[in-house]
Nucleic acid binder design. Structure first.
Lengths: 212, 212
DNA sequence: ATCCTTCTAGGGGTTTATCCTGATTCTTTA
DNA sequence: TAAAGAATCAGGATAAACCCCTAGAAGGAT
């Protein structure tokens, strides 16, 4: 019997998942959680075989929750269920200790397959996630990282000011540096993140959840 | 017997919803759709009593789908299922012809209640959506409107090209108009949405979920 | 018929952004 | 210690963005 903990902040969807998994006689959903904190609490208490977790939850973000679950309960297998197709997500989750990664728009049979695979100590990655991981192995250790990480501290400051709609002159005043220097930082930021203008930079920020 | 069409691009979640609704003996899910276009096609073909639709779908955005469903199949009741709590969404959906609005994180019993209410010709709004609507009735008719709505068709086209990072020259080429005209449109868009530059415009788009 | 809006286009201007190069100072790293 | 990176500033250039303005053509509304 595979005991499963389901963590998803959306009640209806969570119940939908419970309903789906309960159809399989080898799976028993022993608990539900609406946020990361609750998920960890119940996981430590009930020690489920598999934890199905939606990474877009409030209170504690999914990545943090996965990391803590893996630290505090390494024998439990974490299956990340998400709607995010971004490469960063897959990699970050694997680094955090996830044993499986499933997109919400994959087939529903896959969910049951994934839970069973994890219960057997295997891993399970959706086609997409698997290909992302495969690709990443062929890259040097740093380059897969979010290009944002390659920004220097100063550049990161400038980055945030740009995406707030500030002009170079305003940035210079705000950081108490010359306009020319601010201009240089701006140029490097655009260059490093491979965007052509401020509009694209804000898009980049939105895509990578860096918009405050 | 209430026939229901479920439209949601996330397969697992969609099946979860089917599973949930199928538990009630008075409800029969007659079809599923993974996008707006498919939803309309199947709705016209099967003429379900209630259409449960997730408004964050690809191909055709939810609002457009709701609008068309209401136009082409006015006897079908549309229940909007969403994770968006934004006020704009509720109002836009009601204007588009939705008879119900339910947040994904509401209780799962509510879904069945909502479907039944709509089948009886009633409306159903989650606590939150209802309060939003109530609040809006106390406001002047124009002020609640998304300034985006005040853009002309042409301006809206330009708006979307700007937030894609296109320059004025590229926009002009793309729309086959002079650079000066594109520049004028651009100016009006910034002015109407009360932003100072393209970066702020993209922020605006992100905030109002207009970023594709 | 007249008014209003939209779309179109242009003139002419200032400000900002983008893109080079080169250089100094300081810190960190090999 | 030498090399590399980070932060600073500047000159010089082109392109783009932004901000005024006027104005004609087309269409709908009153």
């Amino acid at each position: 019997m595979i005991s499963v903990l389901i963590a998803d902040d959306h009640t209806i969807l969570r119940h939908g998942l419970v309903s789906l998994l309960s159809k399989d006689e080898n799976i028993r959903v022993v608990a539900e959680a609406a946020d990361g904190v609750e998920a960890i609490k119940k996981a430590l208490e009930l020690k489920p075989t598999v934890i199905v977790i939606d990474i877009s939850m409030p209170e504690m973000n999914g990545m943090e929750a996965v990391k803590r679950l893996h630290e505090q309960l390494p024998e439990a297998k974490v299956l990340v269920l998400t709607m995010h197709e971004e490469q960063e997500y897959v990699i970050h989750m694997v680094r955090a200790g996830a044993s499986g990664y499933l997109l919400k728009d994959s087939a529903s049979d896959e969910l049951i397959d994934a839970v069973k695979a994890l219960a057997e100590g295997k891993t399970y990655f959706s086609q997409y996630a698997a290909s992302v991981l495969a690709t990443q192995y062929n890259k040097p250790a740093e380059s897969w990282q979010d290009p944002y990480k390659n920004l220097t501290n100063r550049e990161r400051e400038v980055f945030h000011l740009i995406i707030e709609g500030k002009t170079t002159k305003e940035i210079a005043r705000s950081l108490d540096i010359s306009v020319k220097t601010a201009e240089n930082h701006r140029g490097k930021v655009l260059d490093k993140l491979d965007v052509a203008n401020a509009a694209e930079l804000v898009r980049y920020a939105a895509k990578h959840h860096l918009l405050m």
